[in-house]
Design a protein around this nucleic acid. Sequence first.
DNA 1: AGCAATAGTTGTATTCATTCAACTATTGTT
DNA 2: AACAATAGTTGAATGAATACAACTATTGCT
Lengths: 146, 146
Amino acid sequence: MIRHTSGGSEADALWQLMVGLVWETRREWRRKVGEATGLPFSRVRILWRLEEAPMTLKQIADDTGSDAPATTVAVNDLEGRGLVERQPHPESRRAKLVSLTRTGRQIVDRIHSTVRDDAPAAFQALSKTDLAHLRRILERIDRSER
Amino acid sequence: MIRHTSGGSEADALWQLMVGLVWETRREWRRKVGEATGLPFSRVRILWRLEEAPMTLKQIADDTGSDAPATTVAVNDLEGRGLVERQPHPESRRAKLVSLTRTGRQIVDRIHSTVRDDAPAAFQALSKTDLAHLRRILERIDRSER
DNA sequence: AGCAATAGTTGTATTCATTCAACTATTGTT
DNA sequence: AACAATAGTTGAATGAATACAACTATTGCT
């Protein structure tokens, strides 16, 4: 769905164009991830974040925008499936560190390898020059965004 | 979340970068839309499509990737709220055309005006030249995508 | 005329996600 | 030592999304 809201800046218009391009591909992709993993999407999102480093439940909650109870339930679920484990936090005894198990890491790898998030065909057809422009621009945005 | 899957083409890598940029902004935006309209998101999605032209239930179902029963329920809901109405299809008596009511159109307008989907700050900071590049590239993708 | 396919409806069941209240254990502050 | 704040847990309630079976009405095909 491509939507142009009247009255915005050129940046807003482009942003909306970009969102539209991305948006429509996400449902299908989400479905495929669910199919490949047998996991609801909220769980996959957590596995992702854990790929880089272990996190406390609090961090997971903040990061995923859910509250503490929901996070406990999600981590319980993942732990029950053997994808994740709780460990004592080295610095605080009330916090717990959640990290990927070997199996959990395999699942994440499987997502990356089997559910390839390939660019749409039109994307592939861009010229080398356009790709270079695009990379430069996207990286600039990405860098200043974080 | 920025994710680079190993082994893909440059286009795939850029696509994933773009998806990552867009993705993280969507939850918040969805929440705001829900807040502004009081509608679940599946309903808003239907209102959107109807903005351009009336559609049959079948078209809505195909377009949103849901099945016939779900679509009937959704349209019932929207009709109950007075945002949408069923009309006989001019060419087939078994099909029905769903179109926005005046109130429905107001809701859609409200989404556009109050829940501005503004570009992230980093986006706004791009140079005129980069914006021009970006527009050219995105429009090329958009055109060949549909 | 008879039959298959299509458009839509009704009802039901399941799974997910989100939120709230009430609770324990630990830590930091005064 | 007393108290407030923080991290996590448990359980219940609610709202959404998705899927399926069974049905009616209409249309197209032969």
